[in-house]
Amino acid sequence: MLLKKKWREYSGPYLMVLPCVILLALFTIYPMGWAFKYMFYDYDGFSDARFIGMDNFVRLFTRDAEFWQSVRNTGVFTFGKLIVTLPLALILAFILNQSRLFGKNTIRAILFMPTIISAAVISLVFYLMFNSYNGIINNVLIQFGIIQSPIEWLGIKYSMATAIIVAIWGALGNYMVLFLAGLQGIPNDLYEAASLDGANKTQQFIHVTIPMLGPVMQIIIMLAIVNTLKSYEGIMVLTAGGPVGKTEVMYLYIYKLFFPVSEGEAVVQQYGYGAAAGFVSALIVGIITGLYLFISRKSSESH
């Protein structure tokens, strides 16, 4: 009788959570367990898996210069994107948070719109725009006399900068909305008090907005770091990691191990090695995130 009563009391919440638990087990826990197993195997998905111990990790750390180049590219891409996107998103959010700004809701919607568009679609559009010979970017610059000949935006020299520009455009609205949510939690009384003390908008931004936004900003920066370190879809469509690996980031490199690009008949999946590379990449992301959280926490405690 007691068991029946307990079931009636708690069955509803457990049944509501059950679908999420099942999906989590199927699409997160099981794939993680599968990858953890096969990173110690030589396995291509077709032939029998052969246990090789730590050989995949030895190869990764001693013989795979391409992977470590992708790690460096990821660092450059992440720094270049966030150093522009986050300050710009914060400034836009501060401006759009003003109550008297005309058409602010329309501007917010326009800036946020790229966030709801697929990264692949965005990159395809920008690929056509940055095309060296018939892209609109070069045509406009030539017509205004800014350049004399087409620039190879997707070539060796400018490909990473182009990828960063596309990433900034796609992510700016998302971070702007997050900052805007944080700004709306700051009491107006603080701005009124600062205004009475003679502080202008810039001084209010530095001495009121930034300190009050600190906790929210820590979370936004952490999410931005993790999402950027893991992103690869846009670069895959824009440059496919080229030319000569100049824009190949960590998770694009791992994607190619699992789903290699066909070059004639030489198509070999490297599931075991890809799992090992994925594990090391996850460790790199975790370490960077942990270091950021440690530094930000120490900074908060010191203030």
Score class of each variant (00 low, 15 high):
6 K>V: 02
7 W>M: 13
7 W>H: 12
8 R>Q: 10
8 R>T: 15
12 G>Y: 13
15 L>I: 14
27 F>Q: 01
35 A>Q: 08
36 F>G: 13
39 M>L: 04
40 F>W: 14
42 D>Q: 05
45 G>Q: 04
46 F>E: 03
49 A>D: 02
51 F>Q: 00
56 N>A: 07
58 V>E: 08
61 F>D: 11
62 T>D: 09
62 T>A: 10
68 W>H: 15
75 G>W: 03
76 V>E: 07
80 G>F: 03
81 K>H: 07
83 I>L: 07
89 A>P: 03
96 L>S: 09
97 N>W: 02
101 L>V: 08
105 N>D: 14
122 I>P: 08
125 V>H: 03
126 F>V: 01
130 F>G: 04
133 Y>W: 10
139 N>F: 13
142 I>S: 08
143 Q>C: 11
143 Q>P: 00
148 Q>H: 09
150 P>R: 01
155 G>Q: 08
158 Y>S: 06
163 A>P: 06
163 A>I: 02
163 A>F: 06
164 I>T: 05
165 I>A: 12
166 V>T: 15
167 A>E: 09
169 W>L: 12
170 G>N: 09
174 N>I: 03
177 V>P: 06
177 V>I: 15
186 I>V: 07
189 D>R: 08
189 D>H: 12
189 D>W: 05
193 A>I: 14
194 A>P: 00
196 L>G: 07
200 N>R: 09
207 H>N: 04
207 H>V: 04
215 P>S: 01
217 M>C: 11
225 I>G: 01
228 T>E: 04
229 L>S: 09
235 I>R: 06
240 A>M: 02
241 G>V: 10
245 G>C: 12
252 L>H: 09
252 L>F: 05
252 L>D: 00
255 Y>T: 14
255 Y>M: 15
262 S>V: 15
266 A>T: 15
273 Y>S: 01
280 V>Q: 00
280 V>C: 06
285 V>T: 12
287 I>V: 15
287 I>T: 08
294 F>D: 00
296 S>C: 04
303 H>N: 08
